[in-house]
Design a protein around this nucleic acid. Structure first.
Lengths: 341, 341
DNA sequence: TTGTATGCGTTATCAA
DNA sequence: TTGATAACGCATACAA
């Protein structure tokens, strides 16, 4: 079933069918109806490949997510969901590529052969070969996250440095003097994962500004790692009374670890950080945290991408979000008699 | 950059380049090398749209996931990850379509216009309009889950009826006489979600076989719902000493609810069910459960689909998995003096 | 208002 | 062993 079939059944030429569908040329009401009837009857839809070949665009974007081996966090899932939703809204399809490393086949398939009109890249590192690869190909792309050379690409990101800084100031205001930063996994940070490094910057800066001590620990993205991380933290640094985290996947483990140590939140231990809203609200007690608006971010990334596809020469535009720290119930004044781990 | 460019630079015809790439015609070693050198230098890859148009297949499959509004469970995420990985292994791309309802645009885009060579469908209901739609189009498809008319499609599924039945028998063997089934959300079950109904069947059958009482409750797919569900269960049915569940997303909430009620697992309350392995192992204490092998299932679904794409006339093949119930630490003999909720 | 003809980049058939 | 060419289905410039 193709446009020729529709044309002959409707007794018109193929171009008339094409124009009736696109509306780029006026078609008499009578013929338009005749064509539409045939189309409805046969359920015709233009072939995507032929259209892509002719138009030079595929109406498809690529979404590069972390590799399948790593479990996606809820925040990342929020990005995926909102990107896909925004794409659907713009009548675009989404091709999924789980790839992190350098010469990923799925990533190369995505870029080569003109499969996509644009790409949205997740979990970007400070130095990211995929970004360079995309820049080489000239395919429009937008990062959820950005590299060290922030001005050389389009992106939307969360201002982890500022937000963690604010969290530490909040804790310091409450009298805490020994504060931990619970970062993402050591592997990720070592690989140059931006938020991990920027969170650390903000942390260190705030510590200096307030003249207090801090310990910076890395933690795997899962429940067990979170529990072990807290256990080790309390063992190695028994005076610690508060922590800020950007590791939402570790939160349930952190909670369990604190419980097992007999520490109540926030009476004995204050916890805050930068996490997705759902996590903050599901924590017991609800977490004082800067809520990452994952839903909005996917849609805004899509906006940036559409802008860039429409006009590839448009200047780079970046969006740096610093959502306010929502005061909930997980932070309190430092205990007067700090516990002994 | 296209095949003609490569051809002229290598001093051969376009067809020779094509054959050098596909290997469907012998090409002299010398010309093959000359062509390959040019290709490597320019980084040429065949245009996907042109190839799809000519070959009549897109080397792309569609993956239909639950709508963006609902948060994916880890199990569903496991399906997605393993399907995408298996697809990459077969050099196939994956087009994502989050759609549940009847006339979903994204779903229609997927089916029409020959965008995909096949479809994998998740979260199937007993009566599912998407299945009928796919059957009408004739596009090869495979379900992760199946409809009421199981023999009319290809699928892979977990035998929830049998597994929940085994769980209940296990609990009954331990002396429990008041057992709850914690199902998926009321909305999902009402919509005819298969696993919800089959779990209920297995539950009811086991109760009858053992002559014990049971209560069947539905529970939303999140932490808060799990907590409320347990609270209400203990209030309305205070004699309940054990539960089996297929709702992994509610597990953390169930745990919290039990803790808040002052019930220790497994001393005061036994818990078991059918969940992804990670959930079972992350539960405290580790959950006695039938572990859904989400990773394998995506790969096997892919196998079924490839089989079906290769030969659409092949008879329907189905895979019903009943993984063994792994004994861990969340079930114990019923308490001699049952608690009073 | 409508029809004819061309080309998008491939693969594959036919011819050499 | 290789080259010329048709066809996949569509959108559009050009012609009427």
């Amino acid at each position: 079933m193709n446009i020729g079939e529709i044309a002959s059944r409707a007794g018109v030429s193929r171009s008339t069918v094409s124009y009736a569908l696109s509306g780029k040329r006026s078609v008499s009401a009578a013929t338009r109806k005749r064509i539409q009837d045939v189309i409805d009857e046969l359920g015709y839809r233009p072939n995507a490949a032929a259209r892509a070949l002719k138009e030079g665009r595929t109406r498809t974007i690529g979404l590069v997510i972390p590799p399948a081996s790593t479990r996606l966090t809820h925040m990342q899932l929020g990005f995926v969901a909102s990107v896909v939703e925004a794409a659907g809204h713009a009548d675009l399809d989404v091709l999924l590529s789980p790839s992190g490393g350098d010469h990923d086949r799925s990533f190369e398939r995505l870029l080569s052969g003109g499969r996509v009109d644009g790409v949205i890249l997740m979990e970007i590192r400070l130095e990211d070969s995929r970004v360079r690869r995309l820049q080489d190909t000239g395919i429009p792309f937008v990062g959820i996250g950005h590299t060290a050379r922030a001005l050389e690409m389009r992106w939307i990101d969360v201002d982890y440095a500022t937000l963690i800084n604010q969290c530490v100031h909040h804790l310091a205001d409450l009298g805490h003097t020994r504060i931990a930063l619970i970062n993402r996994s050591a592997a990720l940070v070592a690989a140059g994962y931006g938020p991990g490094h920027r969170a650390r910057e903000g942390f260190t800066a705030a510590l200096a500004q307030r003249g207090i001590q801090g310990i910076d620990v890395e933690c795997g993205d899962d429940v067990l790692a979170g529990r072990d991380c807290i256990a080790q933290l309390l063992r190695d640094h028994p005076g610690t009374t508060a922590a800020a985290t950007i590791n939402e996947a570790a939160l349930p483990g952190i909670q369990r670890g604190l419980e097992e140590a007999g520490l109540a939140v926030p009476k004995d231990f204050s916890l805050t950080g930068v996490v997705g809203r759902t996590w903050a609200e599901e924590f017991r007690p609800p977490l004082t945290a800067a809520d990452v608006p994952a839903q909005d971010m996917g849609a805004q990334a899509m906006d940036l991408l559409l802008e860039c596809i429409a006009d590839p020469t448009a200047p780079f535009r970046n969006i740096l979000l610093a959502p306010p720290v929502s005061l909930r119930s997980s932070t309190a004044p430092a205990p007067s008699r700090p516990h002994r781990g």
